[in-house]
Design a binder for these strands. Sequence first.
DNA 1: GTCTATACCACGATAGAC
DNA 2: GTCTATCGTGGTATAGAC
Lengths: 195, 195
Amino acid sequence: MNFYDNPKQNRREKILHAALKLFFKKGYFNTSVHDIRAEADVSIGLVYRYFKNKEKIAQVVYAELLQGMIDTIEQIIADNDSAHDSCRAIIAYFLEKTETFPEMTDFLFFVRHNEIMPNGTPICATKVPQIIRAMVSKGMETGEIRPMHMAVATTSIFGPTIRLIQQRLHGIIQVPLTTFTDEVWAAAWRAVKAQ
Amino acid sequence: MNFYDNPKQNRREKILHAALKLFFKKGYFNTSVHDIRAEADVSIGLVYRYFKNKEKIAQVVYAELLQGMIDTIEQIIADNDSAHDSCRAIIAYFLEKTETFPEMTDFLFFVRHNEIMPNGTPICATKVPQIIRAMVSKGMETGEIRPMHMAVATTSIFGPTIRLIQQRLHGIIQVPLTTFTDEVWAAAWRAVKAQ
DNA sequence: GTCTATACCACGATAGAC
DNA sequence: GTCTATCGTGGTATAGAC
């Protein structure tokens, strides 16, 4: 159980919640530890009792969000036996999460981790691309997906979805992304499916 | 003539050059005005003589980079008479620019403008999407592109390219993106072309 | 136009009581 | 575990000489 879906809310989780909320709203560098303290309604001393410094807060937020995404993606891949079905389910998950929990997709896809966490990320940021590549690679071997560069295949499948999310978070798109799930999936699949 | 392709380099342009270089390397918030001063080899007083504050520097950098991109895209659209050709040329331009001038695509596509420029962007950030939409819209009317939601069409065409750029800038992709131009274009076109 | 010196303050982080 | 009070630094911005 991660901090972001814990209704009990002990103080440590309240701090993480407050931090993510403010990072999303104002950005990491425009958010002071005092802001987090106030939002979480605890004292400044307590924040530093639980977390060594501000960067560490971001690292923990990041690690837990990422783990949640990895778990979901791995579960999806385990539950589906074609690349086709796995990809479709992952796209649906990304779009739906952006509507219900935009802080998550924003933080994982668009926050500049190198800038806010110069001292190495605990979990390798390339874990998700790795899992995705393995799944797509298998899809190519079985003949579902046409032979192409791995980088082109993965970005052709997920790039449109991620760009939709970016535009939605920027306010360029004003309707729920779930409206587009079927259509964006169909287009992505046309791009990569074997002839 | 914009600051970034001016070989003469008067002092104002040197400051803008230095700022963009450091924003790309360390990020806006990790770059102090003193850093910019040192990189441009001018005094701190001079920086503040030319620019009201740090945010203003970012605004000018942004406005000039964006204008350069808008000019190029408009030129491409004027030079080509099908959406097919225009899109291909724009994708080639994005990929090539990322190799020769990564600071540009990084700043325009992935910098969080709301965070570093809370006081309104001078040029509307949505100008490029507008131009793109008009061009794609025309392509739909002429029957080149299949009828679909505009947001899905544009992201299906350019999303893969933009995601490739993001991964390249993050070091996930280690070969020049121009390697993929033909392949990523072909895939994007399969996604949207009329049956 | 260009420089040096410095004011000012917000913020990250710590000390230490309870 | 939780709090209040406070320190020190780094960074934005200005003053004012040349």
